[in-house]
Amino acid sequence: MEDVRDLKALQLDALCEVANIGAGHAATALSQLTKRKIMISVPRITVTPIEEVPELMGDADAPVAAVLMHMLGDLTGRTLLMFPEPDAKLLCDLLNKREIGTTTHFAELERSSVKEAANILGGAYLNALADFMGMMLMPSVPSLVIDLAGAVLTTAYLNFGHDRDFVLCVQTDFEFQDVRQTLTGQFLLLPDLASLKAIFDAIRVD
């Protein structure tokens, strides 16, 4: 396989299933952490020219809080947890047991809360993947940026990925149901091309 465009329907389905297992575990962890009910979407797989990546998120100019972690071990790639900035503030309120609407900016405690949440989510996601595929997977330390969505997404690919033409993104939306405001976020799995083969081998998909 030379290019992510060569992926077959069966392989995309298999990736979707793998991501679903990961997202399910991550959502359970987040639900326990915040004591809220959380809904997750069926993972979406996008194979797209890298130029169109900013459009994955909607508005390239919109501020987001994003936590990047590298996947290390039997697979390489990155995971990116993204919240629209107002939703990240809401998450800080929930994690720190504050009145909704209290968080106004991202100081040390707030940054640390978001990173910790990402760490727990990313860890649960990767653990589920590792168990399912019989692999060893470890997340790197998380790195948080609060910046423009377009800048975050493109840099996550261009700085670390080796594929600069077409890229693959497995995207899961999640939503907190029972807060006064809805909190949404996205979990993006950005495996390196070489790792896809390892995934397919592990789950016996040709």
Partner: peptide
């Protein structure tokens, strides 16, 4: 040409930005 995600990059590597 910004250098985002600084903490997860190997030391000494020249950034894409």
């Amino acid at each position: 040409g910004a250098r985002m995600f600084e903490t997860v990059v190997l030391a000494g590597a020249l950034h894409m930005g």
